[in-house]
Amino acid sequence: MIVFVRFNSSHGFPVEVDSDTSIFQLKEVVAKRQGVPADQLRVIFAGKELRNDWTVQNCDLDQQSIVHIVQRPWRKGQEMNATGGDDPRNAAGGCEREPQSLTRVDLSSSVLPGDSVGLAVILHTDSRKDSPPAGSPAGRSIYNSFYVYCKGPCQRVQPGKLRVQCSTCRQATLTLTQGPSCWDDVLIPNRMSGECQSPHCPGTSAEFFFKCGAHPTSDKETSVALHLIATNSRNITCITCTDVRSPVLVFQCNSRHVICLDCFHLYCVTRLNDRQFVHDPQLGYSLPCVAGCPNSLIKELHHFRILGEEQYNRYQQYGAEECVLQMGGVLCPRPGCGAGLLPEPDQRKVTCEGGNGLGCGFAFCRECKEAYHEGECSAVFEASGTTTQAYRVDERAAEQARWEAASKETIKKTTKPCPRCHVPVEKNGGCMHMKCPQPQCRLEWCWNCGCEWNRVCMGDHWFDV
């Protein structure tokens, strides 16, 4: 396979590697080409510095992935760790964990309700045991953590790749202090920090972006993250068709209702045909949960890209028209025109101005929308079919299609509260000796007794199943 190397943020060049090629071997190839010592090179990928003893497969490097290699003399205490030698983080029983690669970060837990604080980093599902597709590297999971809308060759929703760059020099040479644990960490600028490894760059702020994971991409090709779309790892039924499908869209209502993408497309087109989208002054033209839940309008309007190009163009047109109407304007009634106009409040005669090729020149009556006339309008008909009709959803289907309910059931079956801080902690095999993952707590306690870890627990039921 081919990976592209950008040395000291210059133009990239291809390097041929195998899945079992080590990072140090990659350094040696680059060092020979650039005429520099291999031990002064640092390989940066997806916000993480890659260790010498890791392989291309370990690092989730795919065909035509772009890695950054910078030349920086080692500072005291760094060289041993980078070589894969006596790194205290690798000691058996050590409590410190390697910062998780962005290629394996899962933010789907952050669609849980606000009262489930902490689960994004504490609760991990076991539903990723799908067998890898044919042709994928051994052991590589097909679980997708992110979804994007690819405006490039795909023109559809695709699995996405999370990447990070330095907000100062805009190069992907920043190593994160810690990985993101929720969508806010990724979507809110300057929320996460790190250290830029580019020479002479003092940058410390992280800037995240997404790429389409279905095809090789260049540095400049980015895609918009659709953070309401998630892999259906909890096997929730769709609120409309009641099938279990994946991926799904999880509405931001209190129940976190789930809808499959085909039904979401149908829901949007139906509402669009009836012009029953909601115009929100802050958000724009949007839709609420299909069950009509309060405070559930979709905030990231790129989710409506699921409509496809033709329907999305209609959505944008109707949204612009609705904006004009909300501002007190009118639409030209001549067939084939429909231009938005903003006449004076007491102006009865409205002319669709033909300047700049935008208007048709038609003069019409503001009251009856017919060709302009003197005197009273002959008839004014009330528009028919403008009443909002509820999208029919079966109550039982709505009850079963809740992301929140599956989460709470998982928590109930696989977790116990920490005796000190009461945060839910998952036990997935292993011994009875637990350690609270909350940095402010870190209590060592017994899963069996529910009390602080002691010699009695150690001698009596340390390794009970």
Rank of each mutant, 00 (worst) to 15 (best):
V425A: 15
V425E: 11
E16R: 08
S407R: 11
M192K: 05
L272I: 08
T388H: 10
M458K: 15
I122A: 15
E207S: 07
D60R: 14
S127G: 12
Y312A: 04
P137S: 13
G429P: 07
T388L: 13
F13K: 02
N356A: 12
H257T: 00
G292W: 03
H227P: 15
V5Y: 07
A92E: 15
Q40T: 12
L112W: 09
V117R: 13
K412F: 10
T217E: 15
I411S: 13
V105R: 13
C352H: 04
P133Q: 13
H227V: 09
I44P: 00
I229C: 07
D126T: 08
V290R: 04
I236T: 09
L342R: 08
D106Y: 04
I188H: 09
R51D: 10
N273A: 04
A320M: 12
R128E: 14
Y312G: 03
C421V: 02
T231L: 06
N295A: 07
C154W: 00
K369S: 07
I188V: 11
P153Y: 08
T414K: 10
L102Y: 08
F146K: 00
G152N: 14
C169F: 00
Q316L: 14
R245E: 04
A398V: 12
T55D: 03
A120F: 04
E374A: 08
S223P: 10
Y391G: 05
Q317G: 10
Q71A: 06
Q316H: 10
A401R: 02
S193M: 09
S108E: 14
A38T: 10
P37Y: 06
T415Y: 12
L174M: 15
S198C: 05
A320Y: 11
Q155M: 12
R402D: 02
R140M: 11
V186A: 04
D18L: 08
E353L: 06
K427Y: 15
I411V: 10
E310I: 08
W183S: 01
I236D: 02
T386V: 12
A390H: 13
V258I: 05
A31K: 00
Q165W: 07
A406I: 12
N81S: 14
E426L: 10
A225T: 05
V423N: 15
G77M: 13
L297F: 06
S136A: 13
P180F: 00
E399F: 10
K220M: 12
G359Y: 13
Q25R: 06
H265M: 10
A38C: 07
D39W: 05
L325H: 04
Y318P: 01
A230L: 06
A405T: 13
Y267V: 04
V350G: 03
A401V: 00
G340K: 07
T270K: 04
Q158A: 10
D115I: 05
G338P: 04
N81K: 12
N8L: 02
G213N: 10
D274W: 03
C241Q: 01
C377A: 02
D280H: 10
Q276W: 04
E444R: 06
N273E: 03
S198H: 08
F7P: 02
N448T: 05
C457D: 00
G84F: 13
V111Q: 13
A138M: 13
T168G: 06
A214K: 09
G340C: 06
T242P: 02
S65H: 04
